[in-house]
Computed example of a mutant assay.
Amino acid sequence: MDVKQVKAYFDSEGVVDYYAQAAADLGLWASEEKIFTRVFTPQDSLLELGCGAGRIALGLYELGYRNVLATDYSRSMVTQARELAKRLEYAMHCRVCDATQLEFEDNLFDGAIFGFNGLMQIPQLAQREQALREILRVIRPGAWFVFTSHDRERSAHRDFWEAESLRWQYGTEKAELDDFGDRTEATDHGAHFMHVPTVAEMQALLAKVGFHVEASVMRSELGQESAQVEAFSDDCRFWVVQKPLRAAT
């Protein structure tokens, strides 16, 4: 899948409006608040990747987190996040930033967040791995990184994945897909891309990059979300991982 196509989807007016509505109406999910407030303190300097229209950063600001840098590779999303923050009179910092090429020095942040399955919307395994390496690089030793993904083995679309497995086995998968687990869906705003990993696949990638997995739990196991949140997003898996205090030898 071409990254330019994925970016064009998130730059489209309809998708930006959809994320802006979620930022205004939903705020933090109950599960996000539970995890973020457990692993991060309000004094921590946090890097948020894939901030969209600012839903998570705005929610954290309302909880007293004042040192969050909200970033996204979509300039349209960042512009919308800035406008929402200005309207609310929140002194929230936002900037355009590519997760695979972070323009920050090593060990700078006290933690990082990549919410709403954003990491999984980076096409190509090598690029997702590069994003993880960049995140590892810019957070300090001992810092936490929290992100979400779908879970292919817990998917409600098991029939699809069984059929997809056969398509890959016989070489009849969609030409634009790079890795098994990739999925594209045609929308009015362009192709929506998502990689759906298994737990074992994600664990192996995190170990390869150098993260320690502290916790991996489904959102539905953390408590009940509102009907609005469940309508906005399917169940997903939270990953809480840590940069080791010492580099592996």
Score class of each variant (00 low, 15 high):
R75P: 03
S155I: 03
A156C: 07
D72L: 08
G52H: 10
A247D: 06
H192G: 06
R133Q: 05
R87C: 14
Q224T: 13
A156K: 15
Q124E: 11
G190M: 09
D235G: 09
A207V: 12
Q21T: 13
A57P: 08
R66T: 04
I35P: 08
D188Y: 02
L108T: 03
V3P: 01
N107H: 11
V229T: 00
M218P: 02
T79Y: 00
L47V: 05
S31G: 04
V6P: 10
L84D: 05
C94L: 12
Q169D: 13
E214T: 11
A81N: 05
D188E: 15
G190Y: 05
A247C: 07
V78H: 01
R128G: 05
K86N: 10
A57Y: 04
D106H: 12
I135Y: 01
A204W: 01
Q80C: 07
T79C: 00
I35V: 15
I135C: 00
R237S: 00
R140M: 06
M202C: 10
T41Y: 00
R38Y: 00
W168E: 11
R87V: 13
N67G: 00
A30W: 05
K86F: 02
Q242P: 01
L28C: 15
W239R: 07
E83N: 04
L46D: 08
Q130L: 08
R55L: 15
L69M: 04
D11S: 12
S31H: 02
W144T: 14
S216I: 14
E176Q: 11
L60C: 14
Q43R: 08
